Simulated assay, not measured.
Amino acid sequence: MSIPKKSILSEYSDNSYFCDSFSKKIAYNNQSAIEVFLEIASQTPTWIAFLMSMRNSVVSKLGLKDLGGLQDIPRDKLASEYAVGERVGIFTLVSSTENEVVLEDCDKHLDVRVSFLIEPEGETAIIHANTVVHVNNVFGKVYMFFVTPFHKIIVPSSLRGLGQA
């Protein structure tokens, strides 16, 4: 699925090496986009945490940074306390509005941006998990070759943890 036009990442996806979007309808209680992301991160399944641990172990030997785990967020910090430029789990906060949060991780090999866009529909909402990757060199392409199949399993599985509509 392509990045929704309403997303901040829509234009950023132009000329990207990789982009996708997964969606889920949820019960909506006026939660902000960053609250949705924090809920997803805090409910990271064990098998995803294991895969991230394996990723970190392998890529740190190849000169990439150890990102930690998606679930590595302080439990006592409120969503409203995060500031642009601050780390939120494995990502850095780029922007945060009520309806969309944009996070990124960049290195010399690739630039990754993710967003969680909320489209309210009364007591329900559609959550769009968007990912855009720009590669900077051949190593970034090789990395994406191995990561892409896992990404296409991990993101939908992470969305399943959100409350049903």
Rank of each mutant, 00 (worst) to 15 (best):
1 M>K: 14
4 P>S: 11
6 K>A: 15
7 S>W: 06
12 Y>M: 10
14 D>L: 08
19 C>Q: 15
19 C>T: 11
24 K>M: 00
24 K>A: 00
27 A>Q: 09
33 A>N: 01
33 A>V: 01
33 A>T: 03
34 I>G: 03
37 F>H: 04
38 L>N: 06
38 L>S: 07
39 E>A: 02
39 E>Y: 02
40 I>G: 05
41 A>P: 02
42 S>W: 02
42 S>P: 02
43 Q>L: 01
45 P>S: 11
50 F>C: 04
52 M>Y: 14
53 S>A: 12
54 M>I: 15
56 N>F: 08
58 V>I: 15
59 V>Y: 14
61 K>I: 14
62 L>W: 08
63 G>N: 06
64 L>Y: 11
66 D>N: 15
69 G>A: 04
69 G>W: 02
70 L>K: 06
70 L>M: 14
71 Q>F: 04
72 D>F: 05
74 P>M: 12
74 P>V: 08
75 R>H: 09
76 D>R: 10
82 Y>L: 03
83 A>Y: 06
83 A>L: 12
85 G>S: 11
86 E>Q: 14
87 R>Q: 09
88 V>C: 13
89 G>L: 12
90 I>P: 13
96 S>F: 03
99 N>K: 06
99 N>M: 08
100 E>S: 00
106 C>E: 11
110 L>Q: 08
110 L>E: 05
113 R>K: 15
115 S>G: 11
117 L>Q: 08
118 I>K: 00
118 I>L: 04
121 E>K: 02
128 H>Y: 15
128 H>I: 01
129 A>N: 03
130 N>A: 00
132 V>I: 10
138 V>T: 10
139 F>Q: 10
140 G>V: 14
143 Y>H: 09
144 M>Q: 09
153 I>N: 01
153 I>K: 14
154 I>C: 00
154 I>E: 00
156 P>Y: 09
157 S>Q: 11
158 S>K: 00
158 S>G: 07
162 L>D: 09
163 G>Y: 03
163 G>H: 12
163 G>L: 09
165 A>C: 06
165 A>M: 05
165 A>W: 07
